[in-house]
Design a protein around this nucleic acid. Structure first.
Length: 426
RNA sequence: GGUGGGAUACCUAAGUGGCCAAAGGGAGCCGGCUGUAAACCGGUUGCGUAAGCUUCGGAGGUUCGAAUCCUUCUCCCACCA
């Protein structure tokens, strides 16, 4: 084990808590099998899950063996950690689909091909569903004290919350995840679990269970949660969750999301989301301080992460599109370029005949989904936020005719700085 | 099973007969400054060009007039059993 992976993670700010101060040393001395669980509550991971995948990969590059655990069994129950309301239970077949989707995402980041540090993937449904209630209560439940369990933050909050209680189902969740760890410890000699800091409680319970049942020693390592990654706010103009699935978040949007990262956080993001070396990152941070207006750190960040998740081809495309959309004159583009640049933008098709007599800009905006009502469409135009082919429009009465089309059939609508829409008059 | 409390726009939360299309805050959106950043400033967030129309958990009623009063239904919470 040549690299000091712990020091590396620490430098990147990826260590929130570790269960043992000796862990760093141990990781340089012996090979570990380590696991991270992935919750199949959706058919794609988002950026928080990406950090964990990258964590597994970083460990793998340091010679350790990652195990990606799909929560097919725990997903049936629902993890109350960090949540203030009860989860909706998922149907087993939905879980299956979600797991399949997440599996392909994991395979892009972590290396599952044979080798000394080969990664494996398992589904905890395989062992959890085989458990019988009586065995579970005798062999696992016996090791947990309810007194301790109710003292946990995630449980206590829900117990004290006047609006939301906690069901027995979710209350039991932590036992299941603990059992996962025990199972992996026994079957795959897995001695380390990593996860977001919200998993600390679940992880330490697992370690304790392993100690009580087998007398063995296991470890836990958590990374900080980045505020806003789950879909809350993160940068003013970026909305919604950022998914790894290209059909849920297009590569262009994905790329843009990182381009828009605030100056104050771009360094942190480079450390969290890329495999760039220390020297490269330090260099980029320095340049970001000196010439922030060039946004070089953001550009490198966006390219790196988009490449990791969507591949070099998509990253290059997103980069080209960004340059064209924010830099050059759209009307100058060749037809092929135009279509390529707007490939990820929403688009719609309308019959060209409606342009004969001219059709109103307001209607086009609504049709394109860039405005929800005539009233708001008027406000956008009046406020100077609407563009046709990147030319600002201020006339509320503006109508669009055949003369406005690019290459005889395209119209690029834009609302605000970042929302483009391609209308194809076929 | 009993008792009490509650349901208001994206979220939170005021409003308890007309001055309410509904305060305040958060969040979003558009604009300005800049650098596709932050901070800040301005505007905006039911529909309609407008007159006006439709909204305050659902249904019905009282009234000239209801988010506000009455009846009933649904759901949520707390305490007691």
């Amino acid at each position: 084990m040549p690299d000091d992976i712990y020091a590396e993670l620490e430098w990147r700010g990826l260590i929130h808590q570790a269960t043992d101060p000796e862990l760093g040393k141990l990781l340089t001395e012996e090979q570990f099998s380590l696991y991270c669980g992935f919750d199949p509550t959706a058919d794609s991971l988002h950026l928080g899950g990406l950090i964990q995948l990258l964590g597994l990969r970083r460990m793998q590059m340091a010679g350790h063996r990652p195990i990606a655990v799909m929560g097919g069994g725990t997903g049936l129950i629902g993890d109350p950690s960090g949540r203030e309301s009860e989860r909706t239970l998922l149907e087993p077949d939905v879980l299956e689909q979600n797991i399949a989707a997440i599996r392909t995402q994991a395979e892009k980041i972590v290396d599952f091909t044979p080798g000394p540090a080969q990664a494996t993937m398992v589904n905890n449904a395989d062992w959890l569903r085989a458990l019988t209630l009586t065995d579970f209560l005798r062999d696992i439940g016996k090791h947990f004290s309810v007194n301790q369990m109710v003292a946990r933050d995630s449980v206590r909050n829900r117990l004290q919350n006047r609006e939301q209680g906690i069901s027995f189902t979710e209350f039991t969740y932590m036992l299941l995840q603990s059992y996962d760890f025990l199972h992996l410890y026994r079957e795959l000699n897995c001695r380390l679990q990593i996860g977001g800091s919200d998993q600390w409680g679940n992880i330490t319970y697992g370690i304790e269970l392993i100690r009580k049942v087998t007398g063995g020693e296991a470890f836990g390592l958590t990374s900080p949660l980045i505020k806003g990654l789950g879909g809350a706010k993160m940068g003013k103009s970026v909305s919604g969750n950022v998914w790894l699935d290209p059909t849920k978040t297009t590569p262009y949007r994905f790329y843009q999301h990182f381009i828009n990262v605030e100056d104050t956080r771009v360094g942190q993001f480079l450390r969290f989301f890329t495999f760039l070396s220390r020297t490269e990152i330090v260099e980029l941070e320095a340049r970001a301080r000196e010439e922030p207006q060039r946004r070089e750190a953001q550009k490198v960040l966006a390219r790196e992460v988009t490449t990791l998740v969507h591949g070099a081809g998509e990253a290059a495309r997103a980069e080209r599109a960004s340059k064209a959309l924010f830099g050059s004159d759209i009307a100058e583009l060749e037809e092929g370029e135009l279509l390529d640049v707007l490939a990820d933008a929403p688009s719609s098709t309308l019959p060209q005949t409606i342009l004969r007599s001219g059709t109103s800009l307001i209607d086009l905006l609504i049709g394109a989904g860039l405005a929800t009502s005539r009233k708001t469409a008027r406000e956008f135009i009046g406020g100077g936020g609407v563009y046709i082919n990147n030319t600002k429009q201020t006339d509320i009465e503006r109508t669009v005719g055949e003369g406005d089309l690019l290459h005889g059939r395209y119209l690029v609508l834009r609302r605000g700085k970042k929302n483009h829409h391609l209308v194809n008059f076929g």
